[in-house]
Amino acid sequence: MSSVDLSVKLPNLTLKNPILLASGTVGYGQEIAEFTDLNKIGGVVTKSLSLKPRKGNAPQRIVETPTGMLNAIGLANVGVEEYLKSKVGFFKNYDTALICNVAASSPEEYLECVRLLDSEERIDGFEINVSCPNVKDGGLEFGNNPALVSKITNLTRGATSKFLAIKLSPNVARISEFARIAKEEGADAVSAINTLVGTAFDIYSRRPKIKNVTGGLSGPAIRPVALAKVLEIRKNADIPIIGIGGISVWQDVIEFMIAGASAVQLGTINFVNPGSAINFLDNLTEYCLTQKINSLSELTGSFTL
């Protein structure tokens, strides 16, 4: 039945379909492979990798909120060296795009991470995390600073000719400004959005429910915000968008594409239903058939205002 073309052409990267699994929700790919066939998925974005291993934040790291969750994991990861040594090899058996998410505490460190990872053939591209809300050094400090986003994009672009996306923070006044900067400095795409800063208190102890006090809000609760950010970027910056934010049912994928996304990432829903991506794909094909759409990409930015 699949006469529908689900593929997505991005600069420096072609995906077999628009569904990627978001950074921080699939580890390094191994665990979720027990529940889903990675070969069918457009791509996987790794947990943020930093130059040195990071222990991450002390517990409690997560709390559920109405149709969402707050997390403050704190970029716990094995570091670039160990990733290259023991983690990336797993993907050599899979035919899916592998995008490494990179986090750092200085522009030079981003450069070094990308430089080290770039030599690994299996890695198809990079997503630069300038928007983690849960670390003291770097993180949102970068994502809120146009000059730093410019510098980080410029440096990492210089270190790789592979696909390069900048993951933007929604915790700014004008996200499209940052998308424009990313475009000017040579990024191939922007990923929007990272989590929204939030918090929750226990009313009896009067303490925050997560140790880090604030965390990043994700899940269906943030979807309308994410859609508006994608729309804002689409209208004001000429750069492909990877839409992220609370996608939980297949219809959400369509909605993000209509608002301007070329591809999307599934995040929190992977925790709830690790097989979501594959369930969505069948429905996307069916939607295209009933809507007489030959190529799913036609949907991107097809809104009428």
């Binding site: 580890g27 222990k55 517990p59 790291r61 997560i62 994991i73």
Partner: peptide, 25 residues
């Protein structure tokens, strides 16, 4: 026990200090 989202190691939401691994949870 701990709060957790996924239950199989991808959310990293349920860390615990362990004597064999000072540098990681």
């Amino acid at each position: 026990e701990s709060a957790m989202a996924c239950g199989f190691g991808i959310c990293q939401g349920c860390p615990i200090e362990h004597v064999q691994s000072e540098d990681t949870y």
